[in-house]
Design a protein around this nucleic acid. Structure first.
Lengths: 206, 206
DNA sequence: TTCACATTGTGAAAAAATTAACATTTTTCT
DNA sequence: AGAAAAATGTTAATTTTTTCACAATGTGAA
């Protein structure tokens, strides 16, 4: 397989989650248009994405749920699993560790960091909280590859620098402030205010 | 102005936030490539977006920060301001109300809802928490147009229905579960797990 | 068996988004 | 004054993403 489009990767992750739910309900097969309805996209797009990863459904019965789940896993997961840390264990940081606790994913949050000494040493959903100054050591020892930033905006640049210096490979920045990282570090930024402003714009424009 | 591309809307919101910071620092003018660097995009794209909204910078000095902020406001804000509610005041709900408190935006969170009786009647960042069953009345009385969903995934469909029945115009769904709404309600869904899986994929693929 | 139907798989077209290319203009330097 | 430099504004080209259109095929009913 050559190059999966960016957007396809995102959708595969979403398909998988929908499929896991279907699997849990006992469904063995699913049609492209069923997946499509769940995700609010078109059936063609689902079929195309599935085509791109080289899977084939059985005609008239749709796709085998279990097989598709496993195949998507092979594509987007890495075999050994990836270790993740969360920097800043405020409300957002806690929400995220929450989301992940108990999920059977290949991604596991293995450390959280904070500046607040009263939080250091505690556990959050079973994950130990370290002093932010111990970051380089912890990231090295625990083989952490991805950092999720949930600190206040003003601390974002400094935290990004620390993560980079600690040898992180990918950053997911949830602070409202864009940060700069060297190009060998993969950066994804998401800003809730932008999303809300977008909804507001389209609500306004009918 | 005819039709602004979807993506342009998102970027305008981001430009504005960057510009507000620059304005606060006392900058009066800014170049397209400076904005571009902050947002990790190209200068051409910035210029193109600005062209689309019909603004012109002064050659050699760049764009007037204040004017651009105001113009973006005219485009994406609605004149009277829009009222927003947050449904589910767990960690994520609190993080979001946090983000918005004190922001001088046209979007204001005026109510939060929860099922937990012990939360009802309290205030969160100054915003009163109502019983989720009182939603229709509160949304009507307070003229709320947008709902942000931060409830557990399993409650998402029911909450979306309630919001729709209460006459909401836009929904921002932060639960991991996609919901269905009639097409006259604008729906935006965002899923943190997908984002993280995407980062993991690109980290894996160098 | 044969026909109608529902569904997949995919090349081709269309649409959307980004990038390139470059003319234009103002400022500054010589 | 004239040339060089640095920016904007915009058309055109390119790339990416989505959608269309339809052939192929298995299923079930008549």
């Amino acid at each position: 397989m050559k190059h999966l489009p960016h957007k396809t990767i995102e959708r595969l992750s979403q398909y998988r989650r929908a499929l896991l739910l279907c699997h849990a309900k006992g469904m063995t097969h699913i049609y492209s248009h069923e997946i499509a309805r769940i995700q609010h996209i078109t059936a063609v797009q689902v079929r195309r994405d599935i085509m791109l990863i080289g899977y084939s459904g059985t005609l008239r019965k749709g796709y085998n749920v279990k097989e598709l789940i496993d195949l998507i896993g092979e594509i987007i997961d890495s075999k050994e699993g990836i270790h993740v840390c969360v920097v800043g264990i405020g409300n957002l940081g806690r929400a995220i560790t929450n989301y992940f606790s108990g999920k059977r994913t290949k991604l596991s949050i293995v450390a959280v960091f904070d500046v607040d000494k009263s939080k250091v040493g505690k556990k959050y959903h079973g994950i130990p909280c370290y002093d932010i100054n111990d970051m380089p050591g912890v990231i090295r020892d625990k083989k952490i590859e991805i950092g999720i930033m949930t600190v206040p905006g003003e601390d974002a640049p400094a935290v990004a620098d620390m993560l980079v210096k600690s040898g992180i490979k990918g950053i997911l920045n949830y602070t409202p402030k864009p940060v700069n990282v060297p190009k060998e570090v993969y950066l994804e930024e998401y800003d809730m205010i932008t999303s809300l402003e977008k909804v507001a714009f389209f609500v306004k424009s009918h």
